[in-house]
Nucleic acid binder design. Structure first.
Lengths: 213, 213, 213, 213
DNA sequence: TATGAATGAGGATTCATTCAT
DNA sequence: CATGAATGAATCCTCATTCAT
């Protein structure tokens, strides 16, 4: 069994309940660190967060961090992947609802970005040259593809006559671009930025939907 | 007088040719530093370039750099603004040509990004939380608006019936998003990425153009 | 009963075969760790080998290592003493052979050093300031004296007219010095170094032998 | 011009007294650091001395250390080379004196080692696997050869009939071995060790001298 | 006795910035 | 104005050892 982000979670056969328990504890601890980091990132740019801060926030020692993560970058990547799982889940939930238009999906995504700027910052960081191990790159790309797949489903569902893969690439790009362009709109507070970016997402969704026909 | 990027260039009255000369020298030196930095950034991620490296590349001392720039960030910002002037000039040149479709403009922009990844990286850096002085933010936003204006002209020219400002916001976002999404497409070299991103830009341009009508 | 290296092995009276068995297991385990460490040291400088590596190589846990050794230094010392036992055994075997000249003995010793650089490195480490418990120092010196004794026998056998103890001190020193001086002879591979050091050992042996008369 | 240890000391033409002055200051500062380190090494094993300690002892900042040395290893190496220059000078001075027998030279050398245990410890460290840059290895070997040359002169002077190079190799080895074997003679204080090692050096010198004939 | 996760002091090194010359 | 040596806080990461299970 593999979780979406590629973390290996060893299946525990009933014969080894002890090990299973340990694994649970391990997962819990890892989660603890992860969440502490996420909360920290909400307060300040993730690139300026130190191991010491994360350790303190998680209530563990520095060394423990390194028991769970090879290095800081791997932790950052895990935070990113965890966030990505969240948005995937959110999309998958909405998919079942009837009013699942392209525009609606765009709104969900952009709302998520507004609520999780760190996710977006990390996307920028990792996609634009942030050092990453080969395994890290692999995980990153698997995740990006997962996101793309959701979009493609929606694009196909919109009945486009064009190449759905290419169109969903373009749509995904368009959505991602909203934040890099307006996340720091001058003199606007978070609420205004949220509203503006949502409107742009809506426009983009509409444009792509309209052109499908 | 103000240059597009807001650099303050003290006007020299003809009565003081000596000072004017000095100012020229000063500009030349500043340019020297700027260009050295740009070349360096082409080789490695700008965030990992040190003052010492820039000084060596420019053939000046570290101290001199601080005579021309308050700090490293200001230098980075200037590099960004200089690049932005380049793309503005490129767009303005093309504007005169007859086949100035929206799609064509998108192509020009995305080509520029591919040739100037540092520009894009800096955009991401500054737009997503990079520390910046109030003056820096001001300069940055003036530049972003200049770019937007060019796009808006084109959008208006495309005869859209929608709110041109909003549409051009959406289009600008869409273009910017291409790079953050595909600059690290796995297993592709620069040429392939350039081709793919250009295709996406073309699609986006077409989509927005089509919907104008 | 005491082994040559001073390891305390609690005598097991026949009445307690169970405990004796346990002791055997204990010895086996200790041996396991020891050998794993020795093999590791053959690959990389012993000072850079970590407990974790030794544990992994021995197939035991870190904690187990500390059940058998007070600390890493004690383990290192034990490796050293085990090696020393090897060279003692080798010398004792050769002693019986007829052609046991001083020069021949020197050759045996230097060959051993070439094959067991870790032994020599540890000698340097412990003799030149490496922290050691009083018991450790005691063990170390007992071993050095054992080695000296073998040499002294040979010196006496060579029929020297001088103070045999002093002469054997000098000879022992001379042999030990060969490696510190030539172990890193530039641009020579192991075979060449082995050959050169052997030749020097031979010269030293001859010189001491010649002067005996 | 090159100093014995390979430090590049740029010759200053009279036309640039300013630069010459700066170079002098630089040398002085480098010397300051060097001496501080040497003194520190006299108090505790050089391997356990930290940059912070050296900086404090030298009255400079940590960063300054790195302005003069690439890294700690280079500093250690320089201390070693400086010591080596001292012993070379001492030998060269004695050379002029009439009673320059082999045995006398050996005494000078062993006295030096007793007074400069750090030198010997470093010799062991660098010769037995201590990490070193290629340039470092080069410097180290040049120094070892310089020492060897002095010995060879003396050996030749002793009128040996054997291969002088080989004999001096053997002699050098023998001397170096004295310290690794007896520097930690148990229960003896520095004075006793000094006396004992000197006696051994004398024996070795005599033995080699006697055999020359 | 075996385990191995947790610990955290401590290491070397970097680098933007200052300022005396 | 130009210089570049000095600064030192701040970084990530290691690893021997402990101890609860």
């Amino acid at each position: 069994m593999r979780t979406e982000n590629g973390t290996e979670r060893i299946d525990q056969v009933p014969e080894k309940p002890l090990t299973a328990l340990k694994q649970q504890e391990r997962d819990a601890r890892r989660r603890l660190i992860l969440d502490a980091a996420r909360h920290l990132f909400a307060e300040k740019d993730f690139r300026s967060v130190t191991v010491r801060e994360i350790a303190r926030a998680a209530g563990v020692s520095i060394g423990t961090i390194y028991n769970y993560y090879e290095n800081l970058t791997e932790l950052f990547l895990d935070v990113f992947l965890k966030s990505a799982e969240d948005i995937l889940a959110r999309i998958d939930n909405e998919e079942d609802s009837p009013h699942s238009s392209l525009s609606h999906l765009c709104g969900i995504y952009i709302d998520f970005l507004n609520e999780n700027m760190t996710f977006y910052q990390m996307m920028g960081h990792f996609m634009l040259g942030g050092e990453l191990s080969p395994e890290g790159v692999e995980k990153l790309n698997r995740m990006m593809r997962s996101l793309m797949d959701r979009l493609e489903s929606a694009v196909v569902g919109s009945g486009t006559k064009k190449n759905p893969r290419l169109v969903s690439h373009a749509l995904f790009s368009a959505l991602n671009g909203i934040m890099i362009t307006y996340a720091r709109y001058p003199g606007r507070d978070a609420a205004e930025i949220s509203r503006h970016t949502r409107r742009l997402a809506s426009i983009i969704g509409d444009v792509f939907e309209a052109c499908a026909h």
